[in-house]
Simulated assay, not measured.
Amino acid sequence: MPKVFIIAEAGVNHNGDINLAKKLIDAAKTAGADAVKFQTFQAENLVSKVAQKADYQKQTTGAEENQLAMIKKLELSFDDFRELKKYCDQKEILFLSTPFDYDSIDFLDSLGMPIFKAPSGEITNLPYLIRIANTGKPVILSTGMSDLDEVGLALKALQNNGAGPLTLLHCHTQYPTLFGDANIKAMLTLKEHFGVEVGYSDHTLGIEAAVAAVALGAAVIEKHFTLDKNLEGPDHKASLNPKELKAMVSAIRNIELALGDGLKRVSKSEEPNKQAARKSIVAKRHIAKGEVFTQDNLTVKRPGNGISPMKWFEVLGLRATRDFCEDELIE
């Protein structure tokens, strides 16, 4: 990827409303994200009737209903996703969606989705990983709640079953993630250990962690966003609003420019400043013709268009070929 691939994670922040989903696409496009990503699932295929909510979900949506009831309200149909894919094409932003069951994998593959994003919760789901790998598409895999051994097994499953190029996203699966838990340097460990592209799926509040990950070498950044943090639903409060998303994209693009190509050289923009900022050997006082140059009658001052002070000891001991005034450049 020629630049950091920024995924604006709409997730289920559409609250089951396709019109809200389209507004999220608009916001992601306006912010300058490369892709907008949703979550595709059939609730009954994803969650059993006895599954309870995660603690953060209980805090954001209450503890009365179980996870299945909550997820069911956030479900969009396959026809909805066909419409959202067309809408993304019209808006010229890449449509992505994370599948959470086999039918959703097959559907998104038939939709022509070019990249599969596998979530942290499926990293130990071998049949799921094989199904995604069988598409032959590139796979971005989040690694929250896992250790190196689990990541390695998941990678092996993907690689051995036909997956395209792989990218690992360091991730901490808590919403929101405390800065002290983010451990962004683990992203570098993933790159060193597995030799694949890496990135960061950021669940901290604000944009600082995502920008820091880019400075460390992230190839992909994923970040949840919403139209309104006060909307009902499990992920809104830990998401960026559209203004914050735009600020994150802008900061990442600026960091990309600032990182440069790593070659140490004089740039075109700083070349003209050499004369003003560097120094030359000058007369410390009046020097008469024929006088020997010494540390007593020479000094170093700006500008830098005379003899470089790096030749200091080559000049000492020579004789002046003419008179020099105080502060005059030595020739």
Rank of each mutant, 00 (worst) to 15 (best):
Y175F: 07
Y175V: 05
P176H: 00
P176F: 00
P176K: 00
T177F: 00
T177G: 01
L178Q: 10
F179G: 15
F179M: 13
G180E: 09
G180S: 12
D181T: 10
A182G: 08
A182W: 07
A182Q: 07
N183W: 11
I184F: 03
K185A: 13
K185N: 15
M187F: 00
M187S: 01
M187Y: 03
M187H: 00
M187A: 00
M187I: 00
M187P: 00
M187G: 00
L188T: 14
L188S: 09
L188M: 11
L188K: 10
L190I: 05
K191N: 09
K191Q: 15
K191M: 15
K191R: 12
E192Y: 12
F194Y: 08
G195M: 13
G195L: 06
E197W: 13
E197I: 12
V198K: 09
V198H: 09
V198I: 11
G199E: 06
Y200M: 05
D202L: 05
H203S: 03
H203L: 03
T204D: 06
L205G: 06
G206T: 01
E208S: 15
E208Y: 15
E208N: 14
E208K: 11
E208I: 11
A209P: 12
A209I: 08
A210W: 03
V211H: 08
A212L: 12
A213Y: 07
A213T: 07
V214P: 07
A215P: 08
A215S: 08
L216V: 11
L216S: 07
L216Y: 09
G217S: 08
G217Q: 05
A219E: 13
A219K: 14
A219R: 15
A219F: 13
A219Y: 15
A219G: 15
A219H: 12
V220F: 13
I221E: 01
K223I: 00
K223T: 00
H224I: 01
F225T: 01
F225S: 05
L227E: 06
D228G: 04
D228V: 04
K229M: 03
K229H: 02
K229S: 02
N230D: 09
N230C: 09
L231Y: 06
E232Q: 12
G233T: 01
G233P: 03
